[in-house]
């Protein structure tokens, strides 16, 4: 296993040869054959499964009938040749990013979180998510435009970038970033979590136009909010803010990305971001950890249970933080001893 992610009630993991296993809530575990356009030889599929199974020295566990969850990991059937590099799990949907930068999604799509252009309620096998139009492959026009001309999204502007390099799933929305540093969002938008200046649902991946011109390197999403990190180490947040999860120092929702200008973040560059359902965490390049948002169960690691609406530094002594991952209501920190 090289990557793993946990959603509200399901988990998903990636093997080093690009296979995907998932377990937990039945609704999130794909079933049946692939709905891909190209017809597929049964042998190819069998080969792929056998290759992965033998590598893992473990049989694929058939899902037990009648049970509402799968306790044992199930191998996700992918199109032949598709190798997954990383995965993201949301409230009830899953995204997978392939080694060539293509996004696949499955699970619940009622608010557009699978980016398929409709409110499809259930996608029971991996489906390609159209993030970058085929016609724009290799053109990368938008990135060259000066910033002032941006914002006229939908008027024939192409999404800057050739492939997707980062994915995130929130409760019922999704965000991806392209190699050119553009952010696309899709899904539930009631709290502004799609960052499009509205509270509408986005049924297809839509470029967050107010971030065009800023190179985004990292993205994470919570139940109602989204947080982005720029290449310069700045933090942008948007969406619901009922628990301070945006870190803006207020409780108003933001429907367009808002740059965090907290004094605690001055002179430091954010490198890694992760969001729980209602909290957010970052690690900076100088090894500091910050958290903000809901803290009822101590998920900010600050030694108390008081919510924070601005980034608060987490003190960890005697080790260097390497990575951070928020669960729905908790936080995991990977650190090395100094």
């Amino acid at each position: 296993m090289v990557k793993a992610a946990a959603g509200w009630a399901h988990c998903v993991a990636v093997t080093d040869i690009g296979g995907v296993y998932t377990w937990g809530w039945k609704e999130c575990v794909p079933s049946g054959k692939l709905l891909g356009e190209q017809p597929m030889g049964a042998n190819v599929e069998k080969d792929a499964i056998e290759r992965q199974s033998s590598y893992l020295n473990e049989q694929v566990s058939p899902r037990s009938q009648g049970s509402q969850s799968t306790a044992l990991p199930c191998l996700v059937t992918l199109n032949p040749g598709v190798r997954i590099a990383t995965v993201a799990a949301g409230g009830r949907h899953t995204l997978a990013l392939s080694d060539i930068g293509q996004v696949w999604g499955w699970g619940y799509g009622g608010e557009g979180q699978l980016g398929l252009g409709s409110r499809i309620r259930m996608v029971s096998s991996p489906h390609p998510v159209p993030c970058i139009e085929p016609s724009s492959y290799g053109k990368d026009r938008c990135a060259a435009l000066p910033r002032g001309t941006m914002g006229s999204e939908g008027l024939g502007l192409r999404v800057p970038g050739n492939y997707v390099k980062g994915i995130a799933c929130g409760g019922r929305h999704s965000a991806v970033i392209t190699d050119a540093g553009a952010v696309l969002t899709f899904g539930w938008g009631l709290y502004g979590q799609c960052g499009q200046g509205s509270t509408d649902d986005e049924l297809s991946p839509a470029c967050v136009s107010s971030l065009l011109g800023i190179r985004i390197e990292g993205v994470a999403a919570g139940l109602w909010h989204t947080v982005c990190l720029s290449a310069d180490g700045d933090v942008y947040a948007f969406g619901g803010n009922q628990f301070g999860q945006l870190g803006t120092g207020a409780d108003q929702a933001e429907t367009i990305p808002r740059l965090l200008d907290a004094p605690s973040l001055e002179n430091t560059n954010a490198k890694i971001v992760s969001c729980g359902a209602r909290h957010s965490t970052i690690i900076t390049d100088d090894g500091k950890v910050f958290g903000w948002g809901w803290n009822k169960y101590g998920q900010l690691g600050l030694g108390d249970v008081i919510d924070r609406n601005i980034p608060a530094q987490v003190t960890i002594e005697g080790c260097v933080p390497k990575n951070v991952a928020c669960g729905w209501w908790h936080t995991l920190l990977l650190a090395e001893p100094t």
Binding site: G91, G110, E111, G171, R172, W188, L190, D201, L223, W224, A277, K296, Y297
Partner: peptide, 18 residues
């Protein structure tokens, strides 16, 4: 209280009709 919080979150986890 945790159970109530989980249910409350579910009541707010999507559009009201869903």
């Amino acid at each position: 209280e945790a159970a109530r919080e989980m249910a409350w979150e579910q009541l707010h986890s999507g559009p009201w009709h869903s």
